[in-house]
């Protein structure tokens, strides 16, 4: 198996206007920085983006918003982005807000061949409007459908040409479930290694879920909330 493509532009081949994309990451942690930059360059518009967040004004999916490439966002939390707010209030951007756990499970279900599932999350709230309600063990649940995407853009720490991936720290987040749910999944990694270098016992995403892989470059890894504690003084 050799799924390696030369760079981010080659990786995005086939992405056209009005497609649905999943984009991994939580906040700015574990986002596919190179693929997002390439999408800006590619200039495709009318995109539906499924991503937990929408980046910040000048980084992450915020770059696509600035460029007016996104028609609809499907997210759980979108609070850190003024351009997002402007487009949403102006009616330029459709937004579908989904409880975070339901979003993750809908992606997982999409990749796992489960068309829908019942969850208690959102019962009795506006999230439940128009959805089937069913009691299990005396507790009401709502029916949520699976999500899939034309392309999933994900980011891992290390990967090999078979598409096997491992993630680092909490940069894992939505990446593994979105890898499963993309019809074509494009993985960018910080380090491309030879097959066999990754211990099969510790693979997070098996290569079967990945169609294209490339080594990214110039990772900025921007931190949204830099919080530190004071060094204890030496006495």
């Amino acid at each position: 198996m050799n799924k390696i493509v030369a760079d981010s532009m080659e990786a995005l081949a086939g992405i056209t206007n009005d497609m649905t994309l999943m984009v991994g990451g939580f906040g700015l942690c574990g986002i596919p920085e190179n693929a997002i930059a390439a999408l800006v360059k590619l200039g495709v518009t009318g995109l539906t983006c499924i991503s937990n967040n929408a980046g910040v004004d000048d980084f992450g999916l915020g770059l696509l918003l600035q460029n007016k490439q996104i028609k609809k966002m499907i997210s759980s939390y979108v609070g850190e982005n003024a351009e997002f707010e402007r487009q949403m209030l102006g009616g330029e951007l459709e937004v579908d807000l989904i409880p975070q756990g339901s979003l993750a499970e809908r992606c997982r279900a999409g990749g796992a061949g489960i068309p829908a599932f019942y969850t208690p999350a959102g019962y009795g709230t506006e999230v439940a409007e128009g959805k089937e309600v069913k009691d299990f063990n005396g507790k009401p649940h709502i029916l949520e459908s699976a999500l899939t995407a034309d392309y999933a853009l994900i980011k891992a720490w290390k990967g090999d040409r078979h598409g096997n991936l491992i993630y680092k720290g909490t940069a894992r987040n939505f990446n593994p479930v979105m890898a499963m749910a993309g019809k074509i999944t494009i993985a960018e990694v910080e380090e491309l290694v030879e097959p066999g270098e990754l211990d099969p016992n510790f693979i997070h995403t098996p290569g079967i879920f990945v169609q294209r892989i490339f080594e990214g470059s110039h990772y900025e890894k921007r931190i949204e909330q830099r919080t530190v504690r004071q060094q204890q003084s030496l006495s």
Partner: peptide
């Protein structure tokens, strides 16, 4: 509206 994040899953 910023979104519910994980709050609905947590409380449910």
């Amino acid at each position: 509206v910023k979104g519910m994040g994980g709050a609905m899953d947590l409380v449910a």
